[in-house]
Amino acid sequence: MHMADALISPAVGGAFWAASAGLIGYSCKKIKSELSDSKVPLMGVVGAFVFSAQMINFTIPGTGSSGHLGGGMILAILLGPWAGFIVMASILTVQALFFADGGILALGCNIFNMGFWTCFVMYPLVYKKIVRQHHSSQSKLFWGSMIAAVVGLQLGAFNVVLQTVLSGISELPFAGFLAAMQPIHLGIGIVEGFITAGVVAFVVKAQPQLLEITIPQADKSPVSIKLVAASLLIAAVITGGALSWFASGHPDGLEWSMFKTSGAEELDTPDNAVYDKSSGLQEMTAFLPDYGFKESEVAVAAEETAESWPAVSVGTTVSGLVGGLLTLALAFGIGFLLKFKRKIPSPAVS
């Protein structure tokens, strides 16, 4: 459920970049003051651990299909929220760069979706409340990990839906997308919960002191509720800001009218102003006939749609495509010219 560059608008991407960067900066500060130097390699290697664990497929019982690990909740439990968040962020960064899982602009969204809820919300508010000490009973350990993992993933999936819909690149309606995403991630979350609980139980049994070392001052709640509330508020403001930015962003001409017309049926309250505006835009585009093909050429195509679609979109789009392909050819041409001048073979795949 990595958010992708192709689906987000710069406003949404930028807002979540800012949020994630802020959280990373704050977590780094926290770690510096709380942890000793020895945790630096520990975090790094544990990151590599989750990274390599994600590559192992396992069977999901009863389905025959296979899944793999997300790891946000495991990291929060094994390393504590601050270090867990940093490690999750680093894993996602490597994935964004090497596997194009997500993307560079969507990285902020992904860090937020997969790190924030698990480390800063589910860990302090759910896991720590259920599992007060690491030598709690097996069932507490199990339910703590399970609920935290499931709800954490649900919140993450909700974020994905929110970001997608706010960006407006995908046509998926909010409710429909949500109805698809949440149940899918419920299944994934339960599997993640089983694994989280299993790994935590194993580690607690084998080396109980490990968790007490990795989490300093285990008795104090490491994240205050106030802070969580504040972060949530900030997140809400940022998302709201992103929304308004998107809404006021004025896509020009044809596309705007297209958007409004096609979306009109779905709008609950048909807004006259919007109609006026979009028809006004259509007139405007009609005033610029030279955007399109000469009439004789597109007569066949235009006749059918002339009544219902007065906008001269056809020609514009076709010229756009022709021009686009030409520029692409031009770009390749430049590439070949440059290549011609430099004849060094690329290294072979090792």
Partner: peptide, 27 residues
């Protein structure tokens, strides 16, 4: 065909323990 959840958890758990002792050696 693929590892079941239980063996997977145990496998991951022991990998984690090996990881932490490696981290200690690196440190």
């Amino acid at each position: 065909k693929a590892i079941g959840i239980q063996s997977f958890s145990i496998l991951l758990g022991s990998l984690f323990l090996r990881t932490t002792s490696r981290a200690q050696r690196i440190y």
